[in-house]
């Protein structure tokens, strides 16, 4: 179980702010962290990982103090059993895929086996001899995930791990994430902006805004969306749109449409 209340001054593009977040995570939970940029999501992840020092509060994990303002306690990142996947992946340019994992697993009794297992699990065996610069974005992401897991962490922190990837790659990696979360019995915190991704993976969502928790709850299924083509433009910002099945509907756009224009429509129940 992870229990924390952390405070930290924020320096965002919109000016100075203050992060103040208290949460409790159950073991095995997959928590999604969402919110606009500058809300403090990455800062919170860095505080949990021990890469930045909080200004006040506490952080305990499995009964162990990782941080406490009074009496002063501080566990450096090296001694926190966690894995962090950085937004830019932070792969070591001079090491091959296998060497990255071996470096991370170094010092564990069955490290060779862990490395081979992770390479196989994340479909990296064939790429084991490659350097990061030779890999695609999705492949680099899998290496970063495998490397974070090689240390056998209890807590996995993911900073927008899939945002830079194309849709098919993202779907494959979502499946991989769900699998490793289950298999290694992890507690996971995932920063994501994608409601579909959150709904698919997370057990709970925390929305941050300006450093505060704005909403906590179960992930909301996003409204299903449809693509349609404008058939005819009607007066008063309305248009006739043909849906993929062939059905034709009338929608209010509030702007001028062009015939042949592709529209993305979301369906909400009023």
């Amino acid at each position: 179980m992870i229990d924390f209340h952390l405070r930290k001054a924020l320096h965002t593009a919109a000016g100075p702010g203050h992060l103040d977040v208290a949460l409790t995570l159950a073991p095995g939970e997959l928590l999604a962290l969402t919110g606009p940029s500058g809300a403090g999501k990455t800062t919170l992840l860095r505080l949990l990982a021990g890469l930045d020092r909080p200004d006040g509060g506490f952080l305990t994990a499995a009964g162990q103090d990782w941080y406490r303002a009074k009496p002063r306690r501080w566990l450096p990142p090296q001694r926190r059993p966690l894995g962090l996947v950085f937004q830019d992946y932070a792969l070591f340019p001079h090491l091959t895929v296998r060497e990255q994992l071996a470096f991370a697993a170094d010092g564990q009794p069955d490290n060779k086996q862990i490395v081979n297992e992770l390479l196989a699990m994340l479909e990296l065996t064939e790429l084991a001899g490659q350097h990061p610069a030779q890999l695609s974005g999705g492949q680099q992401q899998r290496v970063a995930l495998a490397r974070a897991l090689a240390r056998r962490p209890r807590l996995l922190l993911l900073d927008e791990p899939l945002s830079a990837l194309d849709l098919p790659t993202r779907l494959r990696l979502q499946a991989a994430l769900a699998e490793v979360h289950q298999r290694f019995e992890l507690t996971t915190i995932l920063i994501s902006h994608d409601p579909t991704e959150i709904a698919r993976l997370a057990t709970r969502v925390v929305e941050l805004a300006l450093g505060q928790v704005r909403r906590v709850g179960p992930p909301a299924m996003p409204a299903p969306s449809l693509r349609g083509t404008v058939l005819a433009v009607l007066p008063a910002g309305r248009a006739q749109v043909q849906l993929p099945g062939g059905a034709v509907i009338e929608v209010t756009l509030g702007r001028a449409a062009r015939v042949g224009e592709e529209l993305e429509l979301s369906v909400t129940v009023a």
Binding site: A49, G50, L51, P76, P77, Q78, R79, R80, L82, G83, L84, F86, D88, A90, L91, F92, F103, A104, G107, R147, A148, A150, R151
Partner: peptide
């Protein structure tokens, strides 16, 4: 993030 990644790997 390079040294930081190494720190989080212990």
């Amino acid at each position: 993030s390079l040294p930081e990644a190494a720190y989080t790997l212990g």
